[in-house]
Write a protein that binds this DNA or RNA. Sequence first.
DNA 1: ATTGATATGGTGTCAAGGGCAACAAATTCA
DNA 2: TGAATTTGTTGCCCTTGACACCATATCAAT
Lengths: 388, 388
Amino acid sequence: MVERPSRVDGVRRTNLGKILRCVHLNGPQSRAALTTETGLNRSTVSDLVSELALSGLVTERDPDPTRRVGRPSPIVAASDDVVAIAINPEIDALEVGAVTLGGRVRERVRETFTQPPSAADTVAAVARIVTGWRTTPLAECRMIGLGVALPGLVRADTGLVRLAPHLGWRDENFGHAISLATELSVVVGNDATLGAQAEHLFGAARTHHNVVYLNGGASGIGGGLILQGVVIEGADGYAGEWGHIHPGIDRESDRRTPSGTLEDEVNQTRLLQAAGLGPVDHSALAATLAASEDPRALAEIDRQRRILAVVLANAINVLNPSMIVLGGFLAILHERDPEGLLADVQARALTSSAENITISAAALGRDRLLIGAAEAAFAALLADPVGV
Amino acid sequence: MVERPSRVDGVRRTNLGKILRCVHLNGPQSRAALTTETGLNRSTVSDLVSELALSGLVTERDPDPTRRVGRPSPIVAASDDVVAIAINPEIDALEVGAVTLGGRVRERVRETFTQPPSAADTVAAVARIVTGWRTTPLAECRMIGLGVALPGLVRADTGLVRLAPHLGWRDENFGHAISLATELSVVVGNDATLGAQAEHLFGAARTHHNVVYLNGGASGIGGGLILQGVVIEGADGYAGEWGHIHPGIDRESDRRTPSGTLEDEVNQTRLLQAAGLGPVDHSALAATLAASEDPRALAEIDRQRRILAVVLANAINVLNPSMIVLGGFLAILHERDPEGLLADVQARALTSSAENITISAAALGRDRLLIGAAEAAFAALLADPVGV
DNA sequence: ATTGATATGGTGTCAAGGGCAACAAATTCA
DNA sequence: TGAATTTGTTGCCCTTGACACCATATCAAT
């Protein structure tokens, strides 16, 4: 599904993108390093970097002092004045960020709501914030586009929000509306899928190309897949709804709901109840559970871990990933006993597929969704750096 | 993970491959059709086709008589004298075929064994057959390479057979051995993965880019995935081991084994027993079950279908395919009551993801694995038609 | 400080590739 | 028979990256 250049000038686009993607993903580096990494000729890299610099996408600065012989090579860095706007509407808040091409969250605003914001409210708030930024502090910046990390079912190709139960949205043409209001090109994606991409490119799964990502939020379990380096969106864009699967439960005594889904059985509310806590935020829950010796809490953690282990083992058998990343409260299940979870998973998965698996907690924290959404917005730029 | 050309002459390879893939997948067609389909210029297509014809990969023949104005366009067809050797070692037989670039199984030999053949035996048998074919009847042919559809865990990149339980092979360097013996470049793949690719390119899933394929054989359940047009092999090449997952079972009364795997619960042996049959071949089983009114057999079919439905619903929630293809005895579960299976699946899957799903029986029959294996062997040719 | 070794940037030339326009050829239709 | 239509063919042009050669900047040894 990757378009390969069929014309000579398509090669130019490809190579400009290759260079830009290098500095975008791996940070500032010398021209010489780019030459090695891309396999292109020195003179070609020189030419490409000049063009990228001319269009303001990268900046060149004096070489770092190395201790090596030979002419020093100037450092190429993605411009900090090229930004993507990233937004994440949640049930009680709207987060808007400006993420630079270098991967830094340069600006961030969080607006809280007492009730879930409507699509129109969200569009208005985003437009207001972005318009404000355009005069200050991002007056010098080029806004490439806008990415939306949305908790719900999204058609990535059209920006249509099919269903976002926690926001109460249904069949909203959100991508179009926000594009009109901000005059930016907009990409809408599922939050978990974009989170997976963020962890894949910048987080815990950086060196892996086959990644299963599962995130446990207050309202359910979502996830994303990167297989053979490709973000899996599904035929309609609805892939990754792990929370709705019906898990295999080894011990019937672990079951709490008749024919329940994964998120009926494994969820944050049950953890809170078992630990005797009211609604708390994630870090408080993590701290409490990490320290807790309450047998009821421990038993519930174990139960949820067992169910999760079967789900992960199934995923390993079918997808053979090299990395599983767990976010949200699922990271707590992992961190409470990483070896136990790994052992449970390996006991139920095919030996060969499970022997090289790594299970990790997500690494990017609160930046994850903004980075993932920005990445989606940057995709067009990376595919055609000077044409966009 | 798709290599995009970074040099001008890489464009040539891409475009030659584009043309060749067109006639390979879609059959003989006029140059004008190729021009439309590839988006390339008339003169470019002309040049590319000439080069392909010169190297013997395609043949041109006089235009079909159409009833349209304008100069008739000559028909370009993949050469029938370009073949890939495809082999499929099974528990009791070895199948070897020669598949043309046009997709036709031109030669086929099946050798039966009383006990599972060793890797060395298989290599010897294949070498003998291929050497024979080289003098007759394939003396005029160019053998592009050899593809192996192997029932077991295979590292696709190295041709190493990690484990093939039914053949009794373990850590066999099969790809290398057969390459030495036949002097062909060899690609080894998992049989179900290659079957999925065959159904994707030539079979029931032709028009789909997101396909879940599940095959029920005498010895277990294997499968393959095509997601966004990409064959999913996994980090080590072990993806698709559906038989080893632990299924979610809605009714505890449907469970036959404590914490059993999918293929413990859903298998051909249980179907045969319920129908009161001894070991029979697939078509006999299909015929018998299609006609059977035996309540025990019907109950068992229903039970297996219920379990399968949950597995498929889970796959839909996570992967959002547009097509599910069932082969082997799983096709029987489907054909006995297609609407029932679809309803069971849709009842357990997310509405949005399941509403556009198609569930079909596999279409290619006994040619499937040979075509899939040949396709793997053709891949290198299609990526670089004249360089190979 | 001077000089040589090494690595890299810069420039001009070259070959390869596809697009394009003009022309030729082959068919249908009036 | 000629006009309209579609497609193959040919020669030229533009774009692109590779390559060779020279310039330049650093380090190390004298």
